[in-house]
Structures are given as structure tokens and as C-alpha cells.
């Protein structure tokens, strides 16, 4: 942690956030907000949180900006002004200034920034850092805490992604048009009205295989380097999103079936919970992977924890990939699943 660097970046972050709220054009605000997320990603790297930075770069600067753009594209881009309404602004400013003042007063009681001896860094976190290598043989402690020690948390977070994509999928879909949609999404389509630009199409066609290869590497190599199921899943989803922006959604659905997408959304959560359930059946606790060594005696308890983590990450990646793509297709086509952006 280098405090000069961090202070500079944090100041820039505040400026970017302020500008994105202040700017009148919504598209401009969204793009500035993408820059805000990217600066945040640099801040995380400066504080040693590389996994978080990786996630923020893929999710915050990449996918969530696209979600915002899709919404602005389908609603209105300009902000309409009614009569100057001062009372709400005045009232909310007073609330925020008061609350901010009290929080600022409380700051003095917190441990200093970068204090290695503060309570946050010394109870459970210390145990994870000192014992992860012995107990699981995974050098990246973030992965071992994510997929092993705190797997219960992660399972329900994956469940939230699953539920959120289902909600979006069902609510934006009009009930009368559902039958028609199912028919139209699965039939063979001619790719005549694809994106106009030849360069974008060809460049995306070249980039997508490398993106997917890199995403698979991120998922599999998460034990040793920053990365893992969440990051790899988001990059896989982003590659599909790129493909559907260059061509259209129908073309991607012809390769990656909509039914298949919904199934893999569910299968990811199922893999995660299923591994936990197998541990339970074999006599261990829920998601206590060392019980798996009864099933594969040659592996031993450490090796089975190591391998089970990989499968859990694969499950997470499946759910996150399909979830991101499902949210994108619903948002960008306004529930029609035809053209997209």
C-alpha cells in the first residue's frame, strides 16, 4: 500500500462519481461511471485486493456499463426538467450533511488505515492466512476462503445471481408473447440484418475464442493466481455479450440455445449444492470437502479439498456466465430477444 498513490486515486474516484451524477446527458453519465469503476479497480489493486480488482474490472467497468447503456438505449437519453423543485433537494441535502457529519465524527474511533494489528486483521483472517497452505495446498488464500472455508456464503451468493436472472427473465417477458417467443427464438433464422460494420464483426469473431480461452484459464488457474469462478464466469458471459453485439442475439441463440442457457444457470447452483450434499451423505458437514476422501480413497483429505474447490468454481462460473448473458439479453432487447443493441 502506497498512500500517495491511493490518495490520488481516491480523490479522482470522488471527482468521477460527482461528475457522473452531475452530467446532464445520461449516456455521458454512464460512460463516466464506467471510468469511475475502472479507477476503483486501480484502488483495489493498490490496497492488495487483486481478486476484487479483477472482478471490478470485469463486472463494474465492463458488464454493468453495458447494462446501463442497454437501459438508456431503450428508455430516454435526455433528462427532462420540470419546474425547479427546491424542497426535495434542500431536504435531502440537510439529511445527507447531518448524517455525513456524524459519520465523520465517528472516524476517529476506527483503526488507522493500513494498521496490520487492528482487530479486523487478527482473528479469523490470521488463521486463514497461516493455515490455508497446510490444510488445502492452495496458495491463493482468497480462493480457499471463497470456495472452502466460507463456501456456505458463496453458495447463496451464487443463488442470488440465479434468482436475479430468473426474475429478469420472467418479468420483462409479456405473458401473451411467451409462446411466440419460444417459437421464434428456436427456429432457424437467416442472418441478413446483422450489424452494419464489417470490421466490428470480423474483429469480434477473432477476439471471442481468445477471450473464452482466457476465461477458462482464469477459472482453472484460480488456485494459484488472482481469478476463479466469478471472474472467469463474467469474462465468459462478456464474450457472449460481445458476440451478440456484433451480430444479433438470435445468432448467438442459434449456437448457445436459450433452453441450454437456462439449464446451465440451474446446473451451476446444482453442482455447488450437490457437492455439499455428497459431503453430508458421506458423513461430514455440509460442504466439508474432506469427507469426499471416503469416495476417492487415493486422494486423501487435503487433495480432495483441493479438487472439490475446482468443481465448485466451475459451478459458479456456469451460473455467472449464463446469468450475465440472460440479464443482458433481456435488458438489451427489452424482453423480445430479437436484435439487441
Amino acid at each position: 500500500m502506497i498512500w500517495q498513490f491511493d490518495i490520488l486515486l481516491l480523490t479522482l474516484v470522488v471527482v468521477c462519481g460527482f461528475v457522473s451524477l452531475w452530467i446532464k446527458d445520461l449516456m455521458g453519465a454512464v460512460i463516466v461511471f464506467g471510468a469511475y469503476s475502472f479507477l476503483m479497480c486501480l484502488v483495489w489493486t493498490g490496497m492488495g485486493a487483486v481478486d476484487v480488482a479483477f472482478t471490478e474490472a470485469a463486472v463494474g467497468a465492463g458488464v454493468s456499463t453495458i447494462f446501463f447503456i442497454a437501459t438508456v438505449f431503450h428508455t430516454s437519453r435526455t433528462i427532462r426538467y420540470n419546474k425547479w423543485d427546491l424542497s426535495t433537494k434542500f431536504f435531502s441535502s440537510i439529511i445527507c450533511i447531518l448524517m455525513g457529519f456524524f459519520l465523520m465524527v465517528a472516524i476517529g474511533d476506527f483503526p488507522a488505515w493500513g494498521d496490520a494489528l487492528s482487530p479486523v486483521n487478527n482473528n479469523v483472517a490470521k488463521y486463514y492466512l497461516e493455515n490455508s497452505m497446510e490444510e488445502t495446498k492452495v496458495p491463493n488464500v482468497v480462493t480457499s476462503v471463497l470456495a472452502d472455508y466460507r463456501a456456505f456464503d458463496t453458495m447463496f451468493e451464487t443463488g442470488v445471481v440465479f434468482v436475479a436472472s430468473l426474475v429478469i427473465f420472467t418479468l420483462l417477458l409479456q405473458s401473451d408473447g411467451r409462446k411466440k417467443l419460444m417459437k421464434s427464438a428456436f427456429q432457424k433464422v437467416s442472418f441478413l440484418n446483422v450489424s452494419e460494420s464489417l470490421i466490428i464483426r470480423k474483429a469480434c469473431g477473432l477476439m471471442v475464442p481468445f477471450m473464452q480461452l482466457f476465461a477458462l484459464y482464469v477459472v482453472v488457474h484460480g488456485h494459484y493466481s488472482p481469478g476463479g469462478g466469478f471472474q472467469g464466469g463474467v469474462i465468459l458471459g462478456a464474450s457472449l455479450i460481445l458476440l451478440s453485439m456484433a451480430y444479433d442475439i438470435k445468432k448467438v441463440f442459434a449456437r448457445f440455445h436459450m433452453k441450454f442457457m437456462i439449464k446451465s444457470l440451474a446446473v451451476g447452483v446444482l453442482i455447488f449444492a450437490g457437492i455439499g450434499l455428497i459431503c453430508l451423505i458421506l458423513g461430514g458437514n455440509f460442504l466439508d470437502y474432506s469427507a469426499l476422501s471416503k469416495l476417492f480413497p487415493s486422494m486423501g483429505s487435503i487433495k480432495s479439498r483441493y479438487n472439490a474447490m475446482l468443481w465448485v468454481e466451475v459451478g459458479v462460473a456456469l451460473t455467472v456466465m449464463s446469468g450475465m448473458f440472460a440479464i443482458y439479453t433481456s435488458l438489451s432487447s427489452n424482453g423480445k430477444f430479437e436484435e439487441g443493441l
Binding site: 481478486d51 451468493e157 446469468g323
Partner: peptide, 24 residues
């Protein structure tokens, strides 16, 4: 500290999913 990092890592991904619901 890895613990605070994993809590926030999952929070970012869940955050974008719930943001999707909001935008929808």
C-alpha cells in the same frame, strides 16, 4: 487480509445482478 476481500468479491457480482433487476 483475504477475508474482507472475498466478502466484497461476491458482493460485487451479486451487486451487478441486483442492478440488473433494478434496470429491468
Amino acid at each position: 487480509n483475504p477475508l474482507t476481500q472475498i466478502l466484497m468479491l461476491t458482493a460485487i457480482v451479486v451487486g451487478v445482478a441486483t442492478l440488473g433487476v433494478g434496470l429491468m
